[in-house]
Write a protein that binds this DNA or RNA. Structure first.
Lengths: 336, 336
DNA sequence: TTGTAGGCGTTATCAG
DNA sequence: CTGATAACGCCTACAA
């Protein structure tokens, strides 16, 4: 059964019917006699017919495909989101492309080109935010898209689903401050990213409320890739930097920070209190009880898909989606 | 600039040239006057032309796309592999589809259909192994494919890249046994999976060498999905099951087991020694020092892509790829 | 150096 | 109910 694939034409020849009839029968159109329909379907199964989506898509203009462009699937946060998006997509008969950008602007540009070239019906993207050009380009091209996890505050035209980053940053910091930590190290993500900026806003609000000053040297930007944090924390410890609490931009960074603290013989939360963001532990049972900010990855993924589907199905709609999913504090043993 | 996408035809109209000339110019064919070429390229950039891969693929029969079918991207093990595969793919100008099966046979079947319908050039699949039918189907359809992480021992026709599971199982168990644990609980994956079977072989070999019997009640199959392990371990503890060492099928299961042990106030490695498999900690710095078996995810991913590319580029080659990547013991503090 | 014709496999339209 | 015809956008082959 090797060789060329079975096409509608092959079925048509065999059945002595027109290609068109075959096509319509397989799609359960009402205007084909039930008997004929059954006949054709059986034949198709017999001959192992598998449609060619390429051809169909070329004609219909729809690929039933969504591109998901994220910075790093190896980060469980994104792994979980991708899984959830895939699940929702499947329910609606969509397939997803996953493209990694490593938060690199050029890779993001290429990812977008690829997605458009492949005629995806929509794009869910966690933008690297070096500039708005890539996203503007998307918009100009008319591909439905929605940002996830990050937003451009000055661009109300871009739909997004994010979690309440400011509140998350506030809750995390407030908790540390209230536990008595007056010098809280903030291991933040790249400052160009909205979530980093907004979590920092929260950090500031908590300090303001407590009447604590913001110490510039306690705000540190760490790279997003695995391993970067280790370097930074190691250095801080060597310098005997003065802090007792750590608020990390995400759980992966928090883990890495604790990892280094442990290496130096420090104990958490006894010597340092540490809190992360993403609450990965709700989905992956890691034996380190990290306090964190829950951001409902499941809900975010689902909303993003819903929005994309809405935009695909109502291309004329001018509705704007600016969704902010609530964040909550989840206390575990890494803070007290 | 909204609306329909720019096509070769649009460029042709604008330039007063034929579609063909445009196409050839954009592909840098020698037989177009350099001046014309430049003109056309500038125009294309101006009008924001992005080729339609669908149309091209329909013609050429190639999509420059690889499907990656795995059980769970949310498991960092797969997340990391997907990332690595994507990286290699990109280097060769390929894009990847990621499809999750949750190790469900029907979802796997649908995933394969989807991949074929979308005309992927090749498939990298971690098969669910409920039966060989799905894979046989792939073979019958002539799509190049390679198994990753699992194999069918009775099907030498299927190419695969796995790690040395037997050796890994042996090393892990041997280490526990040599540390004085005479009753080692094996939290294994589903037995239909080759890696589970082979790791068990290793477990047995270590026992044989040490002259220890295999106790049936210490071999427990846990579901692959997050949360399953908790239930199992909780029950064992409640039953006061007799064991002091735990060898887990993978790190995620190991983490979950430790998670529960901690909940019950037990300490690792003092009360129980625990070792996992996959060595996720080489890529994600989790602050729990889990001993594990390293299986070179990077190497596996790379080899899988190389093999797929080879098969795509040499469809006639009858070469068979049965690759077994070495596994090694990585000791950390969860065993002593 | 450039243009024309035909086809990839499917689907939409309209006629019968 | 079913069939013929023409697209979808691009590319290969050949003609001019």
């Amino acid at each position: 059964m090797e060789g060329r694939k079975v096409t509608l034409r092959d079925l048509a020849m065999k059945a002595g019917l027109s290609v068109n009839t075959i096509s319509r029968a397989l799609k359960d159109k009402e205007d084909i006699a039930p008997a004929t329909r059954k006949l054709i379907k059986d034949l198709a199964k017999d001959m192992g017919y598998i449609g060619n989506a390429l051809a169909g898509s070329l004609r219909s203009g729809l690929t039933k495909t969504i591109a998901v462009i994220v910075s790093d699937v190896a980060n469980p946060h994104f792994g979980i989101m991708v899984k959830d998006i895939d699940k929702t997509a499947r329910k609606h008969n969509y397939t997803i492309f996953v493209i990694n950008t490593e938060d690199d602007y050029d890779m993001e540009e290429r990812a977008i080109f690829t997605a458009i070239r492949k005629n995806v019906d929509g794009i869910i993207i966690c933008p690297s935010q070096r500039s708005t050009d890539n996203i503007r380009f998307l918009q100009k091209n008319g591909v439905p898209f929605v940002l996830i996890g990050r937003r451009f505050k000055d661009e109300p035209e871009f739909d997004y689903v994010i979690c309440d980053d400011e509140k998350g940053g506030y809750l995390a910091t407030k908790h540390l401050v209230e536990s008595g930590h007056r010098r809280v190290l903030f291991l933040n993500g790249p400052n160009r990213i909205s979530s980093a900026q907004e979590r920092f806003e929260g950090y500031k609000r908590a300090h303001d409320e407590a009447g604590l000053p913001i110490e510039e040297d306690l705000i540190i930007e760490v790279g997003a890739s695995a391993g970067d944090t280790k370097q930074v924390v190691r250095q801080l410890i060597e310098q005997k930097a003065d802090f007792t609490g750590i608020f990390a931009f995400n759980d992966v960074i928090a883990w890495e920070a604790v990892y280094v603290l442990h290496k130096y013989g420090y104990r958490v939360p006894d010597d340092y209190a540490v809190i992360g963001f993403d609450n990965i532990q709700s989905r992956l049972f890691i034996p380190f009880q990290l306090s964190s900010i829950s951001n409902s990855k499941g809900k975010m993924s689902k909303r993003a898909m819903d929005i994309i589907l809405h935009k695909i199905n109502h291309p004329e709609s001018k509705e704007r989606f600016h969704e902010v999913i609530d964040t909550t504090l989840v206390l575990r043993e890494s803070t007290k």
